[in-house]
Write a protein that binds this DNA or RNA. Structure first.
Length: 480
RNA sequence: GGCCCCUUAGUCUAGUGGUUAGGACGCAUGGUUCUCAGCCAUGAAUCAGGGGUUCGACUCCCCUAGGGGCUACCA
């Protein structure tokens, strides 16, 4: 029987969940679900300066919103916890001690100033800036003296010299790192907390992670983790380094590339499934020509073999298309509740639920996100609109037509779509006007704009009193 | 600087030695329509460059160029 797949998403709560991070989480989640494995969430909060509980909370919210539920992790617990690195200090400490006793690690008492000085000297000499191993050969007495002197004590990994490291990556293939690339790196900081490369390797091993699926920026770090695995006698997981997501200028995606935080998209009213669908196609495709896939379809189709090796660029235009596609297709039934809070208060007060649903049905035809609702809903705002500039020109002198409309709608029996159409038609017939010349003045009288939703719908929703009032007001200004 | 990774239209991608290089977003044109959107149809646009290997390279190898990442007591 094959071992059960265990994957993890291991963010550090030092910022908002990013499109790139979300995509990494998604690939892990999809793989776990596809394989019937477990998806684990681990919080890498060993950088106490930059980590915060609030950001962790936000991170969990964002993942939850995306629908990427974890099987083990914060809030949920699990057999291999704790899942927050700040709560695992004793574990790292113990393993680091073991490395020291094996001779694979040693305490280091160099100060920041010393390190900084040596580093710049090496750079000046044209050498790669690596730790020179000063503390590697300290005797027990010397170590005690340093401690008595109150020097900061960190623990360094004694990196094996002159060995080239090899790694099999599911996406990159066979990767070879030549010897001498890495110096003795710190595994436990002077504040007692572990560094990323140590904590990640230890936790991945202890948590039984079978596939480490993470961003390509970690590929070079992997050799540091490999030596930790070997020194501790841990079995290596399978490494899967997925390509990065870049901004439109091809640099690493960041804030200035247009709101790449999940929280921003939540706030702006994008459907989560649109984000998930879009993200899934950044660096992956199902291999056929489908483009719109539900969560279930994504899970069924997702395999690591189909993950691309080249980076992709985050394209808001395509996300917007996909989002509007979801909103159009889902319509009132799927999205009305979610969209409701985006309607301006004035509109929500004036109209009943039925009308609001009708409005949303119309708006949902062309909505990249719910945050576009206030602008799109303008034609349904009650009361006469302003007529400015060229727009006024299109009703100027059309007082007769407007009067006929006002009269027609005031007398019309009922307020159904058919009756409304009939009234418009009969006004046109009476004044021998049709097409644009007939509809535009009416549209402008009601909305003040040449664009907008279907006119009959506008009339239907706004109601007789508002319609007649608007037309009257427009007629007054238009002259005859 | 050193090392590692990447390279099909503007963008997301299909493609694994022989294809008119397929699809999608965006763009353009036409149709439907009171307008916008939608929908339908049509169109422009791609294998980074150079060497090999081969009867034959988008596909395999090498070089160059470009991009990205790592080189922290950040992850």
């Amino acid at each position: 029987m094959a071992e059960q797949v265990r994957v993890r998403f291991a963010p550090s709560p030092t910022g908002y969940l990013h499109m790139g991070g979300a995509r990494t989480a998604l690939f892990n989640w999809l793989f776990a679900r596809h394989e019937g494995g477990r998806f684990i969430l681990r919080i890498e909060d060993t950088d106490v300066q930059r980590s915060s509980a609030e950001l962790e909370e936000q991170l969990l919210e964002d993942l939850h919103w995306l629908g990427l539920e974890w099987d083990e992790g914060p809030r949920r617990g699990g057999p291999r916890g704790p899942y927050r690195q700040s709560e695992r200090a004793a574990v790292y400490r113990e393993l680091a001690e073991r490395l020291i006793s094996q001779g694979d690690a040693y305490p280091c008492f160099c100060t920041d100033e010393e390190l900084e000085r040596k580093k710049s000297e090496m750079i000046a000499a044209g050498l790669p800036p690596q730790y020179d191993g000063t503390c590697r050969s300290l005797t027990g007495d010397e170590r005690e003296r340093c401690r008595r002197d109150g020097l900061p004590e960190s623990i360094r990994f004694a990196f094996p010299e002159a060995v080239s490291m090899e790694l099999e990556d599911t996406i990159r293939g066979h990767v070879v790192f030549p010897p001498g690339m890495v110096g003795d790196f710190i595994i436990i900081r002077s504040n007692g907390l572990p560094t990323y490369n140590f904590a990640a390797a230890v936790d991945d091993a202890l948590m039984g992670i079978t596939h480490v699926i993470r961003g390509e920026e970690h590929l070079s770090n992997t050799l540091r983790q490999i030596v930790v695995y070997e020194a501790l006698g841990f079995q290596r997981p399978r490494f899967v380094h997925i390509p990065l997501i870049l901004g439109s200028d091809r640099s690493k995606l960041s804030k200035r590339h247009g709101a790449p935080n999940i929280a921003d998209f939540t706030r702006n009213g994008y459907p989560a499934e649109a984000i998930v669908n879009y993200l899934a196609f950044l660096g992956w495709s199902p291999g056929d020509e489908r483009e719109i896939l539900s969560r279930e379809e994504l899970i069924a189709a997702f395999t690591l073999e189909r993950v691309s090796s080249s980076p992709s660029i985050f394209d808001l235009t395509k996300l917007n298309w996909m989002s509007s596609h979801y909103i159009r297709t889902g319509g009132v039934g799927r999205y009305f509740e979610e969209a409701l809070s985006f309607f301006p208060g004035e509109v929500r007060e004036r109209y009943g639920r039925g009308e609001l649903e009708k409005m949303f049905a119309i708006l949902s035809e062309n909505l990249p996100s719910f945050s576009a609702i206030p602008a799109e809903v303008a034609p349904f705002m009650p009361g006469p609109p302003p007529f400015e500039g060229e727009v006024f020109g299109m009703i100027e002198g059309r007082g007769g037509l407007l009067a006929a409309f006002a009269d027609g709608f005031a007398r019309q029996e009922g307020w159904g779509r058919d009756e409304l159409r009939k009234t418009i038609k009969s006004v046109g017939k009476k004044l021998a006007v049709k097409g644009k010349d007939l509809y535009m003045p009416l549209r402008i009288a009601l909305t003040g704009s040449v664009h907008g939703p279907d006119l009959v719908s506008i009339l239907e929703i706004r109601g007789r009193e508002d319609v007649v009032n608007c037309i009257e007001r427009a007629r007054e200004r238009a002259g005859s």
